[in-house]
């Protein structure tokens, strides 16, 4: 599996990325390659910079006033921090699912249809219906909601809401999906469903998943990156990271001794 991915160029290539919040150095010189059709897990203790790094990949950090980013992040060999890049278009290519399910206070249908609508991806009403249906189906939610598409998205259960958010993200057919601890607000059953969904989705997208759950990283990711104090300590195949980490800190963290 490793051999197969090495020959294709990386989908996203981060080179020497530094992030500062005011005087705080949140991400310290991180270089990382992320591949299509793979799930990459970012793990590390709270405040280690993994979420901050994730948010650099679709420039969500731009909205934070005193946040500065340096270094290079290439999406298909194009620097996403270059001045000619349209952030709005970038975010359409790099979708995001957040820690807390955040459906719009609109109907289930409108939640999923929102992205295609604002980007003009659907030509007809039937077209849009199909995009919504397929997205919900891919997110494993169709059977649960097909009879109540006009209900408010916010009336669904937490796990359903998170899958709705995933459906909303994939409805605009992004190339990369960033997931920032998508299961941390969910119960174990909902978590299992979302995990199964991520596994199904990995073909066709590059998925980058920030998680606090070692088991989750081990179960569904192919690559794992371990962050500590803003630095990338170790990055490699998940099996290798979890069975024979090269860094002592990585070993300490995954065995629960480093906090």
């Amino acid at each position: 599996m490793t051999m197969a991915t090495v020959q294709t160029p990386p989908k996203i290539s981060a080179q020497g990325v530094n992030v500062f919040y005011g005087d705080t150095h949140a991400v310290d010189n991180v270089s990382l390659d992320l591949y299509q059709d793979e799930v990459t897990a970012l793990i590390g203790p709270s405040g280690c910079g993994k979420s901050t790094f994730l948010r650099c990949l679709n420039r969500m950090n731009d909205t934070i006033a005193d946040c500065r980013v340096s270094g290079q992040i290439l999406l298909d060999d194009e620097d996403i921090y270059a001045s000619q890049i349209d952030v709005v278009q970038l975010r359409a290519r790099v979708g995001m699912v957040f820690q807390k399910p955040n459906p719009f206070p609109k109907s289930i249908y409108d939640n999923v249809a929102y992205g295609p609508r604002i980007h003009g991806l659907a030509d007809t009403r039937e077209d849009l219906d199909e995009i919504v249906a397929v997205s919900l189906e891919k997110a494993g939610l169709w059977d649960e909601v097909k009879d109540r598409l006009d209900h408010l998205g916010t009336t669904l259960s937490g796990g359903q809401q998170q899958r709705l958010c995933i459906a909303r993200a994939i409805a605009i057919d992004p190339e990369v999906i960033l997931m920032d601890e998508p299961c941390s607000a969910l119960d174990p059953i909902a978590t299992a469903k979302v995990e199964a969904l991520i596994e199904e989705l990995k073909g066709g997208y590059a998925i980058i998943l920030v998680t606090h759950s070692m088991q989750q990283a081990a179960r569904i990711s192919q690559k794992t990156a371990f962050f500590h104090l803003g630095q990338l300590i170790e990055f490699g195949d998940t099996t290798q990271i979890f069975t024979s980490p090269t860094s002592g800190r990585t070993r300490d963290y995954i065995t629960g001794r480093l906090v």
Binding site: N58, M60, T63, V88, Q89, L90, R91, A92, G95, M96, V97, F98, K100, N102, P103, F104, P105, Y114, G115, I118, H119, C165, R168, A169, I172
Partner: peptide, 12 residues
């Protein structure tokens, strides 16, 4: 969260 959700979808 409502703002970030929309921003994440590429809303201007």
């Amino acid at each position: 969260g409502l703002r970030t959700a929309a921003q994440g979808l590429g809303a201007s």
